[in-house]
Simulated scan of single mutants.
Amino acid sequence: MGAQWKAKHRAAAADAKGKLFTRLTKEIMIAARNGADPDMNPRLRLAIDAAKKQSMPRDTLERAVKKGSGQLDGAVTYEKVVYEGFAPHQVPVIVECMTDNVNRTISNIRVLFRKGQLGSSGSVSWDFDHVGLIEAVASGADSDIELAAIEAGAQDFEQGDDGEALFITDMTDLDAVSKALPEFGFAVESAKIGYRPKNPMRLEGDALAEVEAFLAAIDDDDDVHELYVGLA
């Protein structure tokens, strides 16, 4: 399974909740640019659902929607920027950032990639599929992941531990599959458009530890929103 799903670096940090809220807030604000009504804006609905699952306070959530949709004065404008490159041992990496200062972000990314190799646009994305990624948990012992994937309209799935599952969809089907999965025994934990490695690498021992340390440093940057890695 993709390291972007298994690795939970931020969950191990003492300030993980605050960082998670910051990232969720940015996603809500960007999604709200296309409208403040979640019923008419699937991306906003998914972002709000993700925030609610993390127990984001209602006033924080509502303020993020208003800022993003232009209902409040002085709102910060965030821009999505994507960087590609290699971690140590030539492991491909895609870094999605949400930033209000692109110059600051690229400066930080260059420093963080000193132990790897920062590439140009397209240098590694060809080795990833751009898809919908839905993390879900089986609602009961009799939940059938293969049946759920077929019936809900997912392209593929990966079975995790303790009832965890990853459903892969076409980007355009993400919202529909997310809505359908609960009918077939899977509670959706998160749903997003992301990247899935086509040819994930396997590392062990010191090599794996070196790559994980590199990724943890990148993930710790405040502007980094999502991190996708070509590791099995």
Rank of each mutant, 00 (worst) to 15 (best):
A180F: 05
V93T: 03
G153I: 08
E27H: 09
H89Y: 11
G85M: 02
V211Y: 12
H89W: 08
D73I: 12
H130P: 10
P57G: 02
G18P: 09
N199S: 15
D220R: 15
G153T: 09
G119Y: 00
P88A: 06
A152S: 12
S123L: 00
N199V: 15
P200G: 05
L24H: 08
E183A: 10
G153N: 06
D173K: 10
N101F: 07
L215K: 06
V81K: 03
G160H: 05
E226L: 03
S120D: 01
K6Y: 12
A232G: 10
E164P: 04
K198F: 11
D15C: 04
C97A: 09
S143T: 04
A141F: 14
A12R: 12
R45W: 13
G74H: 02
A64R: 09
N34T: 04
G230T: 10
N34G: 06
R196D: 05
F186E: 03
I134V: 01
S107Q: 10
V95P: 03
D162R: 14
P42I: 07
R63Y: 10
V91Y: 08
T169V: 08
G68H: 04
I150C: 11
Y83P: 02
V229F: 08
L181Q: 05
G70H: 05
L174G: 10
F86R: 00
S123P: 03
Q159F: 08
R10L: 14
G119M: 00
L166Q: 02
F184A: 01
A51I: 08
R110L: 00
V111M: 01
D220G: 09
D37R: 05
E158T: 07
A64Q: 09
G122H: 03
R63M: 13
V82Q: 01
Y83Q: 01
L208V: 05
E189Q: 13
G68K: 14
D142W: 12
L231A: 07
D170N: 11
M56C: 04
A152Y: 02
S178N: 06
T77L: 12
P92V: 01
L44S: 02
A51R: 09
M1C: 10
N101Y: 03
V91H: 03
A136P: 09
K198T: 13
T169M: 01
E135Y: 11
R58L: 11
T77E: 14
D156E: 10
D220Y: 10
I145L: 04
A136Q: 04
A47Y: 08
I134N: 02
A148P: 13
D161N: 13
L72C: 10
H225Q: 09
M201I: 12
G140T: 08
V81I: 06
S190W: 09
M98T: 09
K67F: 05
F167Y: 07
A165Y: 04
A75F: 00
F86Y: 07
R33A: 06
T169Y: 04
E27C: 06
T60R: 13
R33P: 07
P200V: 05
G18V: 10
F184H: 12
H9I: 01
Q159S: 11
Y228W: 14
V91E: 05
N199Q: 14
N199D: 13
E62C: 08
Q155G: 11
Q117Y: 03
Q155S: 15
A87H: 00
E212W: 10
L147H: 14
P182N: 00
L112H: 04
Y195F: 13
E189Y: 07
A209N: 13
L147I: 15
I94G: 03
S143M: 01
T60C: 08
D175H: 13
A13D: 15
D129E: 12
Q71D: 11
T60W: 14
V229A: 00
